[in-house]
Design a binder for these strands. Structure first.
Lengths: 128, 128
DNA sequence: ATATTATTGAGATTAAGTCTCAATAAAAAA
DNA sequence: TTTTTTATTGAGACTTAATCTCAATAATAT
């Protein structure tokens, strides 16, 4: 496993961003910052990072994969209207621990997603 | 909003199945049972049912949408190896209620997904 | 410095999902 | 019941996210 500037760029970008970019977003930003990464590489790199547990792949209702640097006990709030994904700071919530055994199925990870209308969509819908 | 045999078939199929079929799976089964439903209709019907809250759209790591009849307080256990989605019977778990307000974001729905290795994949991997 | 081989990326390919619009059929009106 | 209205269906074209291939490149070992 070799260290390449493409891999370094993708990981550091995801560490810095909190807005769940798509593969396309990542490629665009790389190009903007003068780092050339091909489409095949973007997907290969992201997929490897997901397998390694460094990155989380989020599948939203727009049917495009979004990527998120892995941060434990990290809850997503998804707007049912605009589809945007927000992070709920872990200190704002007490999170139940589901890591137990259910009929031979040993739980290693848990993910909690909450759905509702974000502030913006709520006020927009109210005024219609 | 009209009652059609296509809509009736899709909803009753999802009520009966617990294995989270894809749009393709649903179309295949319809054809098998002699009900002809076109691709456009399958997607239109499913999408409407998701909007109406009758059906849940699950996005898995195979990047294909799976559909599930809506059953409240229903936890999914996803195998990290084979990707299969299992249901955790609600009586097997005490589920935390997240429906509260977080900074203007009013939570209406919650979804808990648990990840690990299913029985089958665990024994398979152990023997390698 | 040279050899080895993992990684990259252009471009072809696949396939899930969407869109269009004429034909169909469900419900309303006569 | 028959006719009219209009929501719904579906064949097929289209879009596009994601995958695959393989020669070129560059990271590490020798």
């Amino acid at each position: 496993m070799r260290k390449t500037k493409q891999k370094e760029f993708v990981l550091s970008l995801l560490q810095k961003r909190y807005d769940h970019p798509t593969a396309q977003d990542i490629q665009d930003q790389a190009l903007q910052e003068g780092v050339k990464i091909g489409r095949a590489s973007i997907y290969r790199i992201l997929s490897d990072m997901v397998s390694a547990g460094q990155v989380r792949k989020l599948l939203t209702k727009d049917n495009v994969a979004h990527y998120d640097f892995y941060r434990p006990n990290h809850v997503h709030i998804v707007c049912k209207n605009c589809g945007k994904i927000f992070d709920l700071p872990s200190e704002k919530i007490f999170l139940q621990d589901f890591k137990q055994n259910f009929g031979g199925f040993e739980i290693e990870e848990q993910e909690v997603e909450l759905f509702g209308l974000c502030k913006e969509c709520k006020t927009k819908n109210a005024s219609i």
